[in-house]
């Protein structure tokens, strides 16, 4: 039962585990990337497999439906063009006013589309992997969003892919601002392990005037997320710490459970 071979294996595995856990963070990150690259051939296979049903569906879609879709897209495109012209005029006016007041000019956002290729297999983290890496200019702490709102931030970067910590993950805290008369500010922290659409807004002042349905945006504090990215809506709020502070639940605009494509924001 207690063969020397068994003890040897036990010692070897414990040694490897302890060695890996005691490595410096930088070395661990490099090793993680190297191990992740074993799975690179499967990335392509998975992508092709995911694309196949969509291609099949496209090939059997009736012509009438396609024409209707083109028509809808044309109409939407027209509306967006009009909105773009309006917002360009507003941006120009904003720039002129900022120049008059001697304020710093706002830098327009640059976005890059990324596909979500993987999710964290562990249930106690909320991260995803995207198909953009350092070869695409991605760096850590870049904000990640969808058309609905903020999703998270880039937490680790490899050559071909990056890890994104989603809002609600313990490693992604966001300074947030509530759209109300008092502009209450707090920090979005981890939510519950089951419901990824709800997160907690903590460190709010005891006098915070929160009502369900109020919008929550990024405050711009902290240096990671620019100001004004929509995050979600207040669901409920309660007084905590014997009335010294307020905590609120926020329903996220973006559906973190069904992310397929996200935008990485370049400052």
């Amino acid at each position: 039962m207690f063969k020397p071979k068994n003890y040897l294996a036990l010692g070897a595995v414990v040694f490897v585990a302890v060695l890996l856990l005691s490595l410096p963070t930088r070395a661990t990150a490099r090793l993680k990337l190297a191990v992740g690259s074993w799975f690179l051939p499967l990335f392509g296979l998975a992508g092709a497999a995911q694309q196949l049903p969509a291609d099949l569906a496209d090939s059997v879609l009736p012509r009438r439906e396609l024409l209707k879709e083109i028509d809808d897209l044309r109409r939407e495109n027209q509306q967006l063009k009009e909105q773009h012209i309006q917002s360009a005029a507003i941006a120009r006016e904003n720039d002129q006013l900022r120049t008059l007041l001697d304020w710093q000019r706002q830098v327009p956002w640059r976005l890059k589309l990324a596909n979500v290729v993987m999710r964290d297999p562990a249930n106690w983290w909320r991260t995803i992997q995207i198909d953009l890496g350092s070869r695409d200019g991605i760096e850590t702490n870049q904000p990640v969003l969808t058309a609905e709102g903020l999703v998270g931030r880039v937490s680790a970067v490899s050559y071909v892919s990056s890890q994104v910590s989603l809002i609600g993950d313990p490693n992604c805290r966001v300074s947030a601002l509530v759209e109300n008369a008092t502009h209450d500010m707090g920090v979005l922290s981890a939510g519950g392990p089951l419901d990824s659409s709800l997160v907690q807004l903590s460190y709010l002042a005891s006098s915070a005037n929160l009502k369900p349905g109020q919008n929550v945006f990024t405050s711009g504090l902290g240096g990671v997320f620019p100001k004004g990215i929509p995050i979600g809506k207040i669901v409920d709020a309660e007084s905590i710490e014997y009335g010294l502070a307020t905590e609120a639940n926020v329903k996220l605009n973006a559906n973190l459970g069904a992310l397929e494509q996200v935008w990485v924001l370049f400052k």
Partner: peptide
Amino acid sequence: GFDSFSANPLGVSIL
């Protein structure tokens, strides 16, 4: 392999 896809520290799933 598990830790490389996860936010786990590398090697934590071995033991």
